[in-house]
Amino acid sequence: MTARITDVCFSFPGADRPVLDGVSLTFEPGSTTAVLGPSGAGKSTLLRLMAGLLPLDRGSVVLPPVAGAGVPVAMVFQDPRLLPWLTVRGNFDFALEAAGVAPTHREARWRPLLDAVGLADVADVRPGALSGGMAQRVGVVRALSLRPGVLLLDEPFGAVDPLLRDQLQAMLSALLAGGDTTAVLVTHDVREAAVLADQVAILGGTPSAVVAQLSVDLPRPRDGLGPSVSAVARDIRSALAGAMPSAS
């Protein structure tokens, strides 16, 4: 079964017009979709609607049922959002307890992922002792340890420096490769979209809807500086330019 959203509409309470009006997208199983658009286009709002953090005004969000001990959806926020009073292990435990994973099965969920992102020895430190990039990796591991059918990422690497961003993109790409997790990534970075996405959706207009959709058929792993990624990034940028409000 495929995850899809149909005719999604949403207005914030008290606002005089909706943020999103009639957004429909289909997410192939195991694919990554990048969502781009001007600031205020409701990209983060769309993710929150998909995560069930905000109520839909109209339309529907259909998430495929997940096998066994997974969750339908998990979210990586723009900030790492690790609870500062818990250790890294405590943060994983909290999420896994909420997901109903038995205490004895929890470490097996996050340990291989934490090793894979090169943070094997931070399990027992508090988030305050981590750098921004490390904390964001822990945030990604927390979401993936829940084994989500759909992983939502809200500009996860927006706040890290460019060199680190390349590394984190490669890490995310490797974590998602071959898995059956469907990812939806909100980003401002056309190159990030070209490196990570199979499908690009561009939101625009007032209220927002999908104004352009591109598919990215490049082999993986992709070289973020290679000519094919650059060509795709240019295509995305021109599509995005069409969605920008005219500067009159």
Binding site: L53, A74, M75, F77, R81, F94, A95, A99
Partner: peptide, 9 residues
């Protein structure tokens, strides 16, 4: 919001 996103009761 984090607690809600992981489904904590």
């Amino acid at each position: 919001e984090l607690a809600q996103s992981v489904g904590a009761g």
